[in-house]
Structure formats: C-alpha cells, structure tokens
C-alpha cells in the first residue's frame, strides 16, 4: 500500500466481447480476497461491478472501470461514452430493460442490473448525459 493507504486498479471493458465481460470483476474479487476483506464485502463489490461491466457491454460499447480501495471504503467508478440513460428513475425500476433480445437469450437484460448495483452498495451516484455517456460511482463502506 502507498502512503495514503489507497490502492487503485483500472480496467478497459471490451464492448465487443460479451464472453470476456466480468474479467475485471473476477480480478478485483481476487485482489480483495488477497487483501483480506470479508467474503460478504467482496461479494457485494464484485457483483455490483460485474453488473456495471455487463451494462457497459450491452448499452455503451464498453468503457472503463476503476476500483479504489481505501481503508474504510471501496469505490467503483464506471465510465462510458455510450448513449446515456434517458430516464434514470425508470432505469432503476426492477424489470425495466432496454436490452435487445440477443442479450436476453444469454440470461441478461432482465432489468435488474442497476437495481442490483444499488442493492449491493451503500451509495450510488449516476451522472448520465444523453449522447455523451454515463459515469456511475458506487461506494461500499468496509
């Protein structure tokens, strides 16, 4: 750990490759386990991050995922240059989805991604601009 006890990891999320989606989350999970975090914290962080990765693959053609590990919190920052979210309140409703059928046939696109991200984190801030992109910041307190 550095002087301010902060660790940071950055990942490119490949928008073209659905089968590799989740690799960043799996890596983060491994590093959190090595760092000695408790299993439920690791589970919450890795599921929230995976849902975010999947969303970026489905809707935004990929993006960037950054995870910052501090002494008392883990922060996940997801940034994409996709179409943006037209109605965030609607997108937060369980079951609301704009995912295409080919995504649904893989078992995704059930409209549970954003609700799960909120469910498993202590704070979630969505900054989305139509035609520009979306930045989602999620915090899990340790």
């Amino acid at each position: 750990m550095s002087d301010n006890k902060k660790l940071s990891y950055c990942f490119d999320v490949d928008g073209a490759n659905f089968t590799s989606a989740g690799e960043a989350s799996v890596k983060v999970k491994k590093r959190l386990r090595e760092a000695g975090f408790d299993p439920e914290t690791i589970r919450r962080v890795s599921i929230a991050m995976y849902e975010g990765e999947i969303n970026m693959v489905i809707h935004a053609g990929g993006g960037k995922a950054e995870v910052v590990i501090e002494e008392d919190r883990i922060v996940i920052i997801l940034t994409d240059e996709g179409p943006g979210i037209a109605d965030i309140d609607q997108a937060m409703q369980e079951g609301f989805s704009t995912a295409p059928d080919n995504i649904r046939s893989l078992g995704f696109g059930a409209g549970m991604g954003l609700p799960n991200m909120k469910r498993y984190t202590d704070e979630m801030v969505i900054d989305s601009r139509l035609g520009k992109g979306t930045k989602i910041t999620m915090t899990v307190y340790v």
Binding site: F18, G22, S25, R43, I47, Y50, L106, F108
Partner: peptide
C-alpha cells in the same frame, strides 16, 4: 438450465 459462458462468472461472483 442456463449453461452459457457467463454461468461460471456469475457463480463465482455470487459465491
């Protein structure tokens, strides 16, 4: 009954 490539990832993350 889902058996695609995303199943191991989900199973792993969900513990």
């Amino acid at each position: 009954i889902m058996s695609n490539i995303n199943v191991p990832a989900v199973a792993s993350l969900a513990d």
